[in-house]
Write a protein that binds this DNA or RNA. Structure first.
Lengths: 197, 197, 197, 197
DNA sequence: AATGAATGAGCTTTCATTCAT
DNA sequence: GATGAATGAAAGCTCATTCAT
């Protein structure tokens, strides 16, 4: 239950936006302070966080809780009985989740090598959880045997992740394919892969 | 035609390795000099490059030429007449290419936002070229209609890219699926998607 | 007549202890507040003192008054008629006084150069008074001619001061000589020096 | 064999003077740089020392080597055969040594509590060595039994140290006694203390 | 009387870059 | 071509002090 004051929140907001835009190292404490409405360079940030890194940690945590909340809601939505419809929903869910967390994704990618401890947990929750859940769904709802489910999840989710990583990390503006068509193609692909024969 | 001396090359080697490990900002000119066998902090690097950024530019360029050369060789390998075999080869090519360019991929991901001008070209060559070629192959060799080919390429290559971005950018140790099985699943998926009905 | 409230006193106590331990500059207002039971960094100290330096001044003053009171009591103790006994008593008095004021001594030593105005008075009272009194005693009770008394006091008290300055200022653990023996030697030395021939 | 360049030496000179005047904490790196002829705040100091503390360490070491050299010379001066003359010489030696090392003495006193590791060695050499040598001299040349020698050294050297600590540390301008007379009194005192009866 | 929050000024340290040798 | 030395600028962080509540 991390304490939450208006200024503290504004600092996290500003910091995460700037970290996403310019990277952690590329963002100075003074910049964060300015963006949070404090006097830049006066160290006002340090009344709310012990170090700059603590801001990053708090920001990642906050994003992850938001993600958790999101997932809880999604879990409520039950089965539709129709494989195509459920694949379409899954694809949209995952893409929406990634769109929400572009900022986090970018920060994770640029800081993964310099601050592994911090990022590890975030990756675990953002990536692994999605894989695990999708694998379980493949097994339980689509009747894919466990050993195959992992491989199918890896290929299937990989395609979805990739689409957002391209634009989010590498700034490749989508890859020229419309989202609707992309999802439709993905669903078709998964559907055929999961169908017998 | 940038001149190439042993020291200059050693500087690029050292710089690209360090940029990949610690990021551009996380690597000091002194570190590069030390790793290149020069006296750290003495500014020897500046006899070969005007700025630190010029080293990055030169490094990216060198990696891209290497990539070009690679692609030329690959183009020589003709058709096999068997769709499954050709899909398998394609997958392995793309993965190998990405494995070769992990360093570049990492640098591009962490610098894409702060240095878009430099990275743009690299992305174009590393990503777009692959997409374009694969789309053309889908159209010409697998008989996929142009409008569909782009979407299929996006999904198909996405899955491959994702597998390497996970480990390369996010440090997710593969996602637990063996490479052989991953490729086999991908081939199966593409094969079914490309087969009529 | 500086007003005295419980909090004010707690601040002085805490401050003098911390000043003695870490030096004036090495002690932050926040540390003093924390040690005094106030919220660190909230500036509660400033309801009792105008500046950090005012705390130091008040602390030194308070220690000096305590010293004055001590001396008044000591003055009541009259002559013993025996030179050796009186020398022994004198030595013990001076050493006890210095032991009481180790904190003050340390602060004075570390701040003497940066804050001469404040320290001057304290030194005057702690050192000069002792010298003056001892010189007077030498003259009046031990029959030493005035001009010689000053030199004898300087040598004699110097030895005593030194013993406490070593441990108090330089952290030399005594200099390996037991206090009892040290006093006995000092008394013997003074006795012989004061005896005719 | 610590490397020695003109700038490096100037930095140590400037730093030790400033440390002595304003204390370690009271001296900023920029001040040292300015006093050493470098641009203040440009960090030129860091081309010669890794940290500010390293400057202090180097400075203390340099002073101690100077002291060592001094002591070696003194050791050459043999016996005079006359106790009074030798006592006078000893007193003057010790006082001269302390006068030379006022700076070191001040730094040691103000930093003893905050950087004990660094100061310990210096104290050992400046204080203990003097005590040990004087004790040995008392035993060997003045014929004082070992157990008594330590106590006599403690009292005798204490008086000398005190005289310089007063002016050096507490800024008490001598204590009003002329140096000649002080030494004469000290010699008389030691002479009587060492004479039989 | 006490606190949460803020600020101006300062600190030590890092670093890309320049230049005389 | 390489080096030792220097520098301007900026970084992260600390701190004495103020003030509205």
């Amino acid at each position: 239950m991390t304490s939450s004051t208006p200024t503290r929140d504004r600092i996290i907001d500003a910091a995460m936006r700037l970290f996403g835009e310019n990277g952690y190292r590329g963002t100075s404490v003074a910049q964060i302070e300015r963006a949070a409405g404090l006097t830049p360079g006066a160290g006002g940030l340090y009344h709310h966080f012990r170090t700059k890194e603590a801001v990053l940690r708090a920001g990642i945590e906050r994003n992850l809780s938001r993600l958790d909340a999101l997932r809880d809601i999604r879990r409520l939505l039950g089965n539709l009985g129709d494989l195509r419809a459920e694949l379409t929903l899954s694809a949209r869910y995952v893409l929406a989740e990634l769109d929400d967390e572009q900022e986090l994704l970018r920060i994770m990618a640029s800081e993964a090598r310099s601050r592994p401890e911090i990022v590890e947990d975030a990756v675990q929750q953002l990536v692994h959880t999605t894989y695990t859940e999708f694998t379980a769904w493949l097994r339980d709802s689509a009747g894919v045997p466990q050993e195959r489910a992992a491989a199918v999840a890896s290929v299937g989710l990989g395609a979805l992740f990739s689409s957002r990583m391209m634009s989010g990390l590498l700034r490749v503006p989508s890859v020229g394919v419309d989202d609707e068509i992309f999802v439709a193609t993905w669903v078709e692909m998964m559907y055929r892969l999961l169908s017998p024969r």
